[in-house]
């Protein structure tokens, strides 16, 4: 039986490679996969129309919603509240008004979160939304042999109370169960010491709450060096720490590839060795690139919202679109609401 038609609202103007890469990804998505998935491209109608005219796409699955302006990447996030009809806000509004089932943007993350706060509500029981990013690890998990761990919050807000860190753990657990199919996701709490009594008071407080919660498979405090090992399916931290951490992981991957490239240029025998390893290195590169996992869901809201990396190319954005579709089909907000009120 065909699944119900769903619509993904896409901010066509958000991100460093917008609108061309965003439109290219949507054009490509419109030609494959689930025929009951439709796309609303939100932004400058003239620009989007012209681009689509020159691009192979399926117009049966795309429509354009005009937005007068957009928030630049370097603009203060608060701009979105003072300016009418920005693309990111119109995208959120389409979802809030029931014309779309999920919103996706690679634009100014602060503006996106503020727009979400304006148009969406928190699910019952949630105190704050959290941005959840995945990162690659050496270990596989769940029936899909997924190599990614989940880290949240990575920047929806800066600080978090102990109760909010507990919320993040519940949301992360629900997400890992629903989207990744892991029965009992292992949860770690990021701190600067493995000792439960050391660290910021919010983290120490959260330790107790997590320890006592029957729905959470809590593994205790973890330090930064545990993150890349992949022993935990869900890692919980406040937004400021998470944002720094995820960018560190991304940068470390880039640096490793850069080292390999510079070695390649130095000596002939290194070059030969690396040449032999090239297909393996390509696989590693694919595994650690943010383009492969595309976007980070903003959990705890009553709607599906995905923030794609601001540097998203069409490939990264295609993966973010897939994630948005998957989250809508999994009815993620309802599932998280269920987890929060159990």
């Amino acid at each position: 039986m065909a699944e119900r038609p769903i619509t993904i609202a896409v901010d066509a103007m958000g991100g460093y490679n917008a609108p061309n890469d965003i439109i290219a990804a949507v054009a490509q998505a419109s030609q494959r996969g689930d025929e009951n998935v439709f796309f609303s491209l939100v932004g400058d109608e003239r620009v989007i129309s012209e681009r689509l005219y020159q691009t192979g796409h399926n117009p049966e699955r795309i429509h354009i919603v005009h937005a007068d302006s957009f928030v630049e990447m370097a603009e203060p996030a608060g701009t979105v509240l003072s300016r009418e009809s920005t693309s990111v806000e119109m995208t959120c509004k389409l979802v809030a008004d029931g014309y779309a089932d999920a919103m996706l943007t690679a634009g100014n993350p602060g503006a996106a979160v503020l727009s979400a706060n304006k148009h969406f509500s928190l699910v019952p029981g949630a105190h704050r939304a959290a941005l959840a990013a995945v990162f690659p690890t050496p270990k596989t998990r769940g029936p899909q042999l997924d190599r990614f761990s989940l880290l949240l919050d990575v920047g929806a807000s800066l600080r978090a109370s102990s109760e909010e860190l507990l919320d993040f753990a519940l949301m992360g657990t629900a997400y890992a169960r629903i989207v990744k199919g892991i029965d009992e996701p292992k949860v770690g709490l990021l701190s600067n010491s493995p000792e439960p009594t050391l660290g910021p008071k919010e983290v120490v407080g959260a330790y107790q709450l997590l320890q006592d919660h029957p729905e959470i498979n809590f593994q205790g405090m973890i330090e930064g060096n545990h993150i890349p090992r992949g022993e935990h399916d869900v890692i919980v931290c406040e937004g400021y720490v998470g944002d720094v951490t995820i960018k560190l992981i991304e940068g470390a991957g880039d640096a490793a590839m850069e080292l390999a490239r510079s070695a390649y240029e130095r000596h002939l025998h290194w070059r030969l060795g690396l040449r032999l390893l090239s297909s393996g290195l390509k696989k590693i590169k694919t595994a650690i690139e943010f383009e492969e996992y595309g976007g980070a869901p903003l959990l705890g809201l009553d709607q599906v919202m995905i923030l794609a990396h601001p540097k998203s190319t069409s490939r990264a954005f295609s993966n973010a679109l897939r994630l948005a579709i998957k989250n809508v089909r999994a009815e993620l907000p309802a599932a998280i609401a269920g987890a929060m009120t159990e």
Partner: peptide
């Protein structure tokens, strides 16, 4: 959805 989008496509062009 398909009909409305097809219509919009012709209007845009």
């Amino acid at each position: 959805h398909e009909f409305a989008n097809s219509f919009q496509d012709l209007l845009r062009r």
